[in-house]
């Protein structure tokens, strides 16, 4: 599998993408955190710029030593550059803060997603059909025991009363949110995507699974051999943090009654 991915990248690398032009007053802001992703960044930016006629592409380059920021600048993207690594998803938060568009689209720099797979998400938000438009890709779920991150995504939606979303999550890219959703959630919370999702659901924002984009091949690369995946523990912790927030706001049962239980009878 990784071989196929490499081949695809090489082909793209052989055909240098033309620089883009960021809109001055964009409708759509595409936010791309990047850490040492020079290999694919140009192609990612090129596709991102095509999601809407009026688009700005913001690359949040952090902890990169391979010239990611320079490559992104050469492509015409707006680049926010940090020498140190910011940590997982912090780039999203910073990018969102700087975004000028009415629609914010989040994607990653290590996977080239064709513009036609990004457009439905942008359109769902731009047309007012959703405040948050999610990728409906769930990962491998046709098995007895699933990855902890998949399990956590499903559990969070269930606890938020949205079992119908299954495992659709702001942890997964690509997804789009409205500017209003950004302000309701708070830019700082976007750095912990499950927390952002819990807040969005609690505030009654319209959260919908919109379009299926297969991003699994990218995840597979992270799991080398049988060693424990550190991202797995980080993201599961993010979900716990989201549940902790939920309990804080709506009580330990998440607003679910158990008045039928005569607890006082047993002490």
């Amino acid at each position: 599998m990784p071989k196929r991915r490499g081949a695809k990248l090489r082909k793209r690398a052989g055909k240098p993408s033309r620089p883009i032009r960021n809109a001055e007053f964009p409708e759509v802001s595409v936010i791309i955190p990047a850490m040492n992703e020079r290999r694919a960044i140009a192609a990612v930016i090129a596709e991102a710029a095509r999601v809407h006629p009026s688009t700005e592409v913001i690359v949040v380059a952090n902890g990169s030593t391979d010239g990611t920021a320079q490559a992104a600048r050469r492509m015409g993207a707006r680049v926010l550059s940090y020498d140190e690594a910011l940590g997982h998803d912090v780039g999203r938060s910073i990018g969102a803060r700087e975004a000028k568009g009415r629609v914010l689209l989040f994607t990653d720099a290590d996977i080239v997603i064709p513009a036609r797979d990004l457009q439905p998400l942008v359109h769902a938000v731009a047309s007012g059909g959703a405040d948050i438009a999610l990728n409906t890709y769930l990962g491998p779920v046709a098995k007895a025991q699933v990855h902890s991150v998949i399990l956590a995504k499903h559990a969070l939606n269930i606890f938020a009363g949205r079992a119908d979303l299954k495992g659709a999550s702001m942890t997964t890219i690509p997804h789009a949110i409205s500017r209003g959703a950004r302000d309701a959630i708070g830019c700082d919370h976007l750095a912990v995507p499950p927390l952002a999702q819990a807040i969005a659901l609690q505030q009654g924002l319209v959260v919908r699974g919109i379009h299926y984009v297969e991003v699994g091949r990218r995840n597979r690369r992270r799991r080398r051999g049988k060693t424990k995946d550190p991202l797995e523990r980080l993201i599961v912790g993010d979900h716990l943090e989201a549940l902790d927030w939920t309990i804080d706001r709506v009580g330990p049962r998440g607003g679910r009654a158990d008045a039928s239980r005569s607890r006082e009878l047993v002490r």
């Binding site: 940090y82 910011l86 940590g87 803060r97 830019c187 700082d188 912990v192 599961v236 716990l240 309990i247």
Partner: peptide, 25 residues
Amino acid sequence: LHEALTAQGKRMAFPDPYRRRVMTM
């Protein structure tokens, strides 16, 4: 989970050591 979160903290045994959260403010 509320019991566990109260006993073990809001991320339980799943820490977040690398995020520079201060940068999000």
